[in-house]
């Protein structure tokens, strides 16, 4: 039985297969709307994340399956005090596949040791969020038609942003150039840089978005999360450092593709939304399709 806990659990061959399947689903949606009939997805969200949960639920419903679950450990008081192994053994007796989100790192890994059905990690604290990474990669392939020889700019909180780390790790295998744009306080951790050195990708670190925006094929913006800071002062000082607006976008290439894992706070001005280069709402949609492909493969339905 396969689980998806860490984005690196997926080989390059499997990734290509998932992306191909997602593209096929996008092309022929009606061919897939009954394939999971009679199957149930369990969404165990120990921490609220409406966006991710709805994406999983929509994905399962569009495959003709059904969904049960909880979206806040506080509401489901029965879960409180019960161990993860017990909850998982119970729920996995009812459902065919589980999407699990938990504030603690490694909780889905623990669950995978006890589950009778495949577990998908839907985010475990600051650790992994593999379906976001799949979403990002699918969007890049659909927008650029390729996954290699791209100049990818990542901007904002590169220290704590787990989606950024996973995306860099995955995309570095294909041979790309990375430009890491962040304040010094929020630079990418050393161990990720070491991995980049070991692969056939190059990277540079800069502090200003304006200096490099004209070189980019992809600009991946991230939110500077308040909860990652130890004090309010640092948060206020840094949160507006890297805001993408129309002025900055004038310097960018015509075929730039702007991505964001969402939700945004103010790092992309609303005026940018109408620009054809803004791809983050399409990205959300692709997130649902790649989850459909993933559910199909893990269930072994197709």
């Amino acid at each position: 039985m396969r689980h998806l806990i860490d984005p690196m659990d997926i080989s390059m061959t499997e990734l290509k297969d998932l992306l191909d399947l997602a593209e096929e689903i996008i092309k022929k949606k009606e061919d897939f709307n009954q394939v999971c009939k009679g199957k149930i997805l369990g969404t165990l969200f120990y921490e609220p994340s409406t966006r991710t949960r709805l994406s999983f639920e929509a994905a399962m419903l569009r495959l003709g399956g059904s969904v049960i679950g909880f979206s806040d450990a506080g509401v489901s008081s029965a879960i409180k005090g019960e161990s993860i192994p017990d909850t998982i053994r119970t729920v996995s007796s009812y459902v065919d596949i589980i999407a699990m989100r938990h504030p603690k790192e490694g909780a889905p890994k623990l669950a995978s040791y006890y589950s009778f059905v495949p577990i998908i990690n839907a985010g475990d604290g600051g650790h992994y969020h593999p379906t976001q990474t799949l979403t990002d990669i699918l969007t890049i392939r659909l927008k650029k038609g390729q996954l290699s020889n791209l100049t990818i700019g990542l901007c904002g909180d590169l220290k704590f942003g787990r989606t950024v780390h996973s995306l860099i790790k995955s995309m570095s295998s294909y041979g790309n150039k990375f430009i890491l744009i962040s304040p010094q306080e929020l630079q990418i951790p050393q161990y990720i840089k070491m991995e980049l050195f070991n692969k056939n990708s190059s990277f540079m670190e800069v502090e200003s978005l304006e200096d490099v925006i004209d070189k980019l094929d992809i600009l991946y913006m991230t939110r500077v999360q308040r909860e990652r800071f130890f004090n309010e002062e640092d948060y206020i000082r840094l949160k507006d450092s890297y805001i993408l607006d129309k002025e900055k976008l004038k310097l960018a290439r015509k075929d730039l593709c702007i991505l964001h894992p969402l939700p945004r706070v103010n790092e992309i001005s609303y005026e940018v939304d109408d620009d054809p280069r803004a791809c983050y709402f399409e990205q959300v949609k692709y997130g649902m399709y790649i989850r459909m492909a993933l559910i199909l493969r893990l269930l072994g339905v197709m």
Binding site: S83, H102, K104, E105, D124, G126
Partner: peptide, 9 residues
């Protein structure tokens, strides 16, 4: 932040 810090067994 690890699940080890929360799960008893």
């Amino acid at each position: 932040r690890c699940i080890c810090s929360e799960e008893r067994q």
